[in-house]
Simulated assay, not measured.
Amino acid sequence: MAILIVDDAEMNAELLAEMVGQLGFNTEIAFNGQEAIDLLRAKSYDLVFMDHLMPVMDGMMAMSVIKEENLCPDIPVVMVTANDSSADGQFYLNAGFSDYMQKPFSMDQIRDLLKKHGIIKTMNIGELWDNLSAEMKGMNLDRPKKYFLFDPTFYLEVLNEYMKTDTLEGIESHLEYHDASELKSAVRSAKDTARLIGADKMADFARSMELDLEEEDEKSFAEHLKGYRQLEKKLRKIISKVKTLKHSYS
């Protein structure tokens, strides 16, 4: 899903894009109403955040063109404004905007607004765990459910942190430099992390690597490392697809 952000203040636009991005959405930025109109003529979005006061073409003029050309027939267009009175809000609604959001805004305000307009599909905890289980084929989420106190958002945050680390790099670097003590520690850490997130098959390979190190069986270690590497590659592909589920949790 893609969201268009229209604001001439680069810092404001990037802040909103960052916050929307944290909810799992792609964003594109236009710095005035004319740029926004050009983009809306060329492609479709799921929601538009429109600033009021901008050079070249302001938000009100842009809305006039949007209505005249029917550019957003089923797309919510939200006015983002520093005005804080209910009368101002009604003014924007009368002008054709689907909603309005006051500056400064918070993550909770953005999330609530996206839920309100159906951009975020609300699910309960059980439904999200079921979706995660369906998406993460080959994973056993029974342990993560209990460990993370049945909080799917906590689990998804851990998956996000996992994507920032490289367990293979730690193993392979110590293997390259024949650092037996650190290699054992890196393999043990990989095993524990795999178990934590429910990657039981990866944990089994890591456990086999531990035994190989104890028995000094280099050939068997290389085979088990190959299996671990293949599963880890698949896991990262899976996680990259399910991360966007985090914005569906209510």
Rank of each mutant, 00 (worst) to 15 (best):
D8G: 11
V78T: 04
K201W: 00
D99A: 10
Q109W: 00
L23E: 11
F148V: 07
K241I: 02
K201E: 12
P55Q: 07
T167A: 09
D217K: 10
A9C: 13
S106Y: 07
Y228T: 01
K201P: 01
K201A: 10
T167F: 02
V158L: 08
H174I: 01
S133K: 02
A82I: 00
I125S: 14
M57R: 07
D46Y: 08
A62P: 05
Q90L: 12
R229Y: 05
V48Q: 08
E18F: 06
G24S: 06
K237E: 14
V242N: 00
D130Q: 12
V20I: 13
V242S: 07
F154T: 08
E127H: 10
M123K: 14
P104Y: 03
F154K: 10
C72A: 13
F31M: 15
D204R: 08
V20W: 00
K246W: 04
V242H: 02
M57G: 09
E28A: 15
L149S: 14
T27R: 07
S44G: 14
P152E: 02
S173C: 11
M11A: 15
E69L: 14
A2K: 15
K145Y: 03
L211V: 10
K184C: 12
N124W: 04
A206F: 00
R41V: 04
V6F: 04
V6H: 06
N70V: 06
M79R: 09
S248Y: 09
F221T: 03
R188D: 11
A42W: 01
G96N: 06
F49Y: 09
P152S: 03
S250T: 09
